[in-house]
């Protein structure tokens, strides 16, 4: 045997595989479908009781009813307008304050502790207060979502401004660019990736707060629909509502992704 080894060259054993994430299509979808099929089967056979989980096909039927009766829009439109107005307010003010914090040391010293103090407050706790301040109608709902999206936007924005490549700012100064030009042409575009990724978090928080905002005084809205389903222990409607919220999350995330691809095409 040992004599033969000289005549029989062996291939070098390959030791380099694995540890490399690969993109495999369709598996995510398959997991989803399998899980739903499993629940459907479990609820039909009866080993998942109808108290534990609703039957997926029943959720689907509830969803269809929602569309056919037009109730989907009756619930979705108020929620979307609350999310749009609230988040637009919170994000606009948040980006503005975040940029100011990023640019001026005095404002940073004054506002960063305030923002840090506001951030961990569960905004839901302030809802009764907002009802007194802004009224039980749309005002308090806008305010809740605005405050909820404001704090993460501020933190993301000033972080993004801080992270703008200093050599670019140095370059601007060395070419004699004015302060305002540097902010507009270097700082803001440079901070945009960070601001947009902060926006993903902010909008997701806005969707979460939608349910909270619709706790007080909302007859229509996805959040009100979910709360109602919960109090009626109507699991089909509860899940249909949750699916709508998830869909909303996927949709807004996709929208931001699309904006990123368009506006941030320059990124490596």
């Amino acid at each position: 045997m040992s004599d033969n080894t000289h005549q029989n060259p062996q291939p070098v054993p390959f030791r380099g595989g694995g540890f490399r994430p690969q993109r495999i299509r369709g598996v995510g979808l398959a997991v989803f479908i399998l899980l739903i099929a499993f629940v459907e089967w479990g609820t039909r056979v009866g080993f998942i009781s109808n108290l534990t989980l609703p039957r997926p096909s029943a959720v689907f039927a509830t969803f269809q009813d929602l569309i056919e009766t037009g109730m989907l829009w009756k619930h979705l439109l108020p929620s979307l307008s609350r999310l749009a107005v609230g988040a637009a307010l919170g994000v606009t003010v948040g980006v503005g304050v975040g940029v100011l914090i990023g640019l001026f040391s005095l404002i940073r010293a004054g506002l960063v502790p305030l923002v840090a103090a506001l951030f961990p407050i569960p905004k839901i706790a302030l809802l009764p207060l907002f009802v007194i301040w802004f009224g039980i109608d749309e005002g308090s709902k806008y305010a809740l979502i605005a405050l909820g999206t404001f704090t993460p936007t501020v933190v993301a924005t000033y972080g993004a401004v801080d992270n703008v490549d200093r050599t670019l700012i140095r370059m601007g100064q060395s070419f004699g660019l004015g302060w305002f030009s540097i902010v507009r042409k270097i700082v803001l575009p440079g901070a945009l990736p960070g601001i947009l990724s902060g926006l993903r978090v902010s909008i997701a928080i806005g969707i979460i707060l939608l349910v909270a905002a619709e706790m007080l005084g909302a007859q229509y809205g996805i959040g009100a629909y979910i709360l109602e389903a919960g109090s009626l222990y109507d699991l089909e409607r509860l899940f249909a509502g949750v699916v709508i919220l998830s869909g909303l999350g996927v949709l807004t995330s996709g929208l931001i992704g699309w904006i990123e691809r368009r506006v941030l095409a320059w990124r490596v």
């Binding site: 670019l168 370059m171 042409k185 490596v268």
Partner: peptide, 8 residues
């Protein structure tokens, strides 16, 4: 490091 604006 060139200091070019990557978005222009």
């Amino acid at each position: 490091d060139f200091a070019l604006l990557p978005w222009r």
